[in-house]
Simulated scan of single mutants.
Amino acid sequence: MVYCKCRNCGANLEIDENDYMPGCRETEDVNCPKCDKIATSVFTSGFPVAREIDKMPII
């Protein structure tokens, strides 16, 4: 999991990278579910899914 703020609207996001295949990784853009603009990019072999959360977790 990756946690970040959307750089457009400021929404707190939790991103599941769905990284299931070692190797074969590419940079994928992640759209914010709130404003539907590109929030960030992740390095993964799967299809990242973002969801809005209330608070950022303390890691």
Results as ranks from 00 to 15, higher is better:
K5I: 08
P48G: 09
M21A: 08
E14F: 07
N18W: 13
I53Q: 11
C24G: 11
T44C: 04
N8Q: 07
I38A: 02
I38W: 02
I53E: 05
E52H: 09
V49W: 05
T27G: 09
M56T: 00
N12H: 14
I59N: 13
V49L: 10
R7M: 07
M21Q: 10
D19S: 13
A11W: 01
E17L: 13
N12L: 15
L13V: 06
D54W: 09
C6Q: 02
E14K: 10
C32V: 01
E52I: 08
D16W: 13
T40H: 10
T40S: 09
V42Q: 01
G46Y: 02
C9I: 12
A11D: 08
D36T: 08
C32A: 07
C24W: 13
D16T: 14
I38M: 10
N31T: 03
P22H: 08
V42W: 09
V2W: 13
D16G: 02
C24H: 12
E28Y: 12
I15D: 00
Y20Q: 14
I58S: 10
M56F: 03
G23S: 14
V30E: 08
T44F: 10
Y20G: 07
M1S: 15
I53A: 08
F47D: 14
I38G: 06
D16R: 04
P48L: 06
K37Y: 14
R51L: 05
M1T: 14
C24N: 09
A50R: 03
N8R: 12
